[in-house]
Amino acid sequence: MTDTKENLKSALSLKFSIRDMGTLIGLVIIFAVFAFLSPVFLTVPNLINIMQQSAINAIVALGMTLVIISAGIDLSVGPVAALAAVICASLMVAGVPSSLAVLLALLGGALYGLFNGVLIAYAGLQPFIVTLGGLSLCRALALIYTGGNPIFGIPQGFRDFINGSLLGIPCPIIIAFLVALILWVVLKKTPLGEYIFAVGGNEEAARVCGVPVAKTKIAVYVISGVLASIAALILVGRLGAADPTLGNLWEMNAIAAAAIGGASLMGGKGSVIGTILGAIILGTLINGFTLLNIQSFYQLLATGIIIIVAMLVDRATRGR
């Protein structure tokens, strides 16, 4: 009997990863096409380049994935990121130690996430509208705070850290990997993960069995705010400046990555691995089209097609 149990267990995990397998196959096909068209595509430096380009979107998209699994949406990630960036940069320029500035910026992102979460969980407002409001609000705050000008003079130490690497792997990739690992553990191994799926899958049933629905919702928006801030700080480190207009359309790229990776806007569905693969697919498109020297218009076209194809494949493989 333990035997059959084990078999079913493996069958179950296999079933769960079929969707991720599909995303992986998609990625491999895209890789194959570019590798065929460009001789430099499949080289180690270029692959690292792709990962590095995907890292920022991946981090934002992972936060978005949790929100989407909980049947919500967070449109405010880009401007929240911008706000965190300018807070962090201005503190650093003012002489605050980098580590403290970073912590405060992440706290800022967390607080805005808390604000989103409270409005959604306790005031019962719709996530789409609340975070749409946040999209304008945070952008405005960032612009007002900076007078619309980028903040320069980011300390070299911080820049070196972000632009540094460990064993040849750039720091942003390592950060993205750590974030992914932590969220994977949260989703797969902790009560919070099960709560997020429960709230997104059937909020009413979750309430009946005593799931802390409000706290769970707040948690995902806080996580999303923090991750958007982390992504912002990586960008600040790489550019050496904090632009209040940073993070434009991040929410769309994040939703795209999550959706390609199998997250359902209806809630209750989504995976860390899928979203990472989704982000890499998007990054690969940018990279490949740049290598081939094709106008970026076509890259946009390809992105659109891939999102829609991913959804069609999703539908077809799910049966009904």
Partner: peptide
């Protein structure tokens, strides 16, 4: 369906 089960979960 509405208040009892979390259908996708084990």
């Amino acid at each position: 369906k509405l208040e009892g089960i979390l259908k996708a979960q084990s």
